[in-house]
Design a protein around this nucleic acid. Structure first.
Lengths: 255, 255
DNA sequence: CCAATACCAATGTTTGAACAAAGTATGGGA
DNA sequence: TCCCATACTTTGTTCAAACATTGGTATTGG
């Protein structure tokens, strides 16, 4: 029995929608809902306010609200039951189709011990491609992380460079966990989607040394931009895989 | 200006919905629409009747009809433009999340003219990896197809080898279409899922000549096994991409 | 004390209506 | 003939209202 009162006056004002905006109300409502369900409060299985309250909060009709609501249900972000209410859907653990892919978690699931045995972090001004991917102005300072990954008896498997616009590091941070988990907690955003680009490149001198291959060896290059639930970029990473030790597999489903 | 008259009386009767049924009207409407757009008549880019006519035909309100209509749009089965109308979406416009990916269709959607300018087909005994992927006994005869793909001014972009356990070719087959469509019709199975593997490999002499690159140039190698709805392999393909001319992009969603 | 029942709160369904915005066709003026 | 304003068709958006259905809770009767 969530009530309107369960949301502060300030939040409510922030959620009010603009009837004069060029963006249709249902789109605004969807955005507002994304913000709302991003809040920690509702990520605990707590029921959202009911449709009538929500629609009053946002100042739109129930139908308009429902359009937005149903889209989020379709995305799998909300779950609702007639007679009960609406709650944030627990993120279903991977295993899936077109789902990703924490390198670490995936390998651990197969009983492989993953190690990050080299690491470097520093602040740098974002280069043009990085800035573009993260949708930030060029020359902004971003946190850059370099990591070499390996497992079992094969130490050099992947070399990845991360770029983070918002992350601050603490000395005691646990880097064995997937990085985006760290970001999610620290910046209170949720990873949602990732845009991936794959190409093959020859190893340059820099990479060759770190992955211990000959210069010119073909590497699988993967650029990934992780978006949060508000579709803002929260991480950009470039990964190079040694293909004699790593094979990327995906399951795609026809839709 | 599609009119109600454009549909015969018999069809109209068949499409009438039952207000007393346990199935909600919008679901019935959806089913009726699926039937309707399955008709050859509308698979030619012909406009469907407008919403008002359709809703009258089905005996439901415009809103109810729209619910069904929008779901089909979301599925990619219909395309509509404000001020114009609704028509059956010709191909299966890829570009979805975790969806695939007809190379041809995807490029055509971007206004790029795709060409298959070299082709070779022959029956061979399946090698071990091929047999394994297709889950057939080794030494079975399979149809092998080699194709070089290109577009616009760039003739050599991808080289792919297909392996088909069940396909028989006819001389007049249209190879410009995605191959799996051909298979679907010929073998009356439906493609459902594809298992993909990506690695980077150096171009060997054979590939180098066909893609016009120097031996040793890194190529993106993609192995794909397409499964039908019964999860039986219906196609195995190995594709090599020139990465200076092609970039593979995917959108993955956390689920 | 337990079970059938009544009630309530929430989502689900359906309608009719009105206006907005986007594209197309038309017709008149330069 | 060409171009632009205009009217019209079609989808897009939004609302209010009513009732159905579902699931949980409180009440009542045995």
């Amino acid at each position: 029995m969530a009530s309107v009162r369960s949301i502060s006056r300030a939040s409510r004002r922030a959620l009010r929608l603009d009837h004069g905006s060029p963006l249709p109300l249902h789109a605004q409502a969807e955005r507002a809902l994304r913000t709302l369900i991003g809040r920690k409060k509702y990520r605990n299985g707590v029921l959202l306010p009911d449709e009538v309250s929500l629609s009053r909060m946002l100042g739109v009709s129930r139908n308009t609200l429902r359009a937005a609501l149903l889209r989020l249900v379709g995305e799998g972000r909300l779950e609702r039951k007639a007679g009960v209410g609406t709650r944030v859907a627990e993120p279903k653990l991977a295993s899936g189709v077109g789902a990703w892919h924490s390198f670490t978690r995936e390998m651990e699931g197969k009983g492989v011990r993953v190690e990050t045995y080299s690491l470097q972090a520093r602040w740098r001004t974002a280069s043009s491609p990085v800035a573009q991917a993260l949708k930030i102005p060029c020359r902004t300072k971003v946190l850059c992380l370099d990591r070499v990954r390996g497992w079992n008896t094969q130490p050099e498997v992947a070399f990845r460079s991360y770029f983070h616009p918002r992350l601050r590091l603490a000395p005691k941070d646990d880097f064995a966990r997937p990085l985006y988990e760290l970001i999610q907690e620290r910046c209170s955003v949720l990873a949602d989607e990732s845009l991936e680009e794959f190409t093959a490149v020859p190893a340059g001198r820099w990479l060759a040394r770190r992955l211990r291959v000959r210069v010119g060896t073909p590497l699988l290059r993967r650029e990934r931009t992780v978006l949060d639930t508000g579709r803002r970029p929260m991480e950009f990473a470039v990964v190079h895989y040694r293909c004699d030790r790593f094979k990327l597999t995906l399951t795609l489903r026809q839709k």
